[in-house]
């Protein structure tokens, strides 16, 4: 059951990325190019997604536990620290160079562009390096 619903959730997420335009780096880079070829479409992606999740989360949290696991596991950290802001800045620069954040990079793998085939393995190496850096 869990792998099936995991797959289904990923599929819905991926279709959302494609339909929204978020899966196309050209569209992402134009969204970020506020003083140039600005395409504000992606503001609607984030807005629509966050609002849907805002409402849906509150419905989900009416249950005492999630359907397929024994308990909710939600981040509790509240401190805005150096690691958070440094990480976000480094991520932002990488996002601005390549036009990919992690979700769209995964969906792009299927299309097999050379840039994607370099980006994804380097992202995975980065994730593990970043986790080590975080635990220092």
């Amino acid at each position: 059951m869990r792998p099936f619903f995991g797959f289904l959730s990923g599929l819905v997420f991926g279709i959302g990325l494609i339909l929204s335009g978020m899966a196309d780096p050209a569209k992402v880079l134009n969204f970020l190019d506020v003083f140039g070829a600005w395409d504000p479409s992606l503001a609607f992606v984030m807005g629509g997604a966050a609002l849907t999740a805002f409402i849906g989360y509150r419905l989900a949290w009416r249950q005492s536990a999630p359907v397929l696991l024994p308990k909710f596991d939600i981040p509790t950290a509240s401190e805005i620290d150096v690691k958070l802001l440094t990480g976000a800045a480094v991520f932002g620069i990488g996002w601005g160079i390549g036009g990919f954040c992690p979700g769209p990079a995964w969906t792009a793998l299927t299309l097999g562009a050379p840039g994607t085939l370099i980006f994804v393995p380097m992202m995975l190496i980065g994730v593990f390096a970043g986790r080590r850096l975080k635990s220092i």
Binding site: V90, W95, M122, M123, G126, G130
Partner: peptide, 16 residues
């Protein structure tokens, strides 16, 4: 693209 991927990986892991 390699540098971008590395930075996205490191940044998202460090920045949670």
């Amino acid at each position: 693209m390699g540098i971008a991927g590395l930075m996205v990986g490191v940044g998202t892991a460090l920045g949670s």
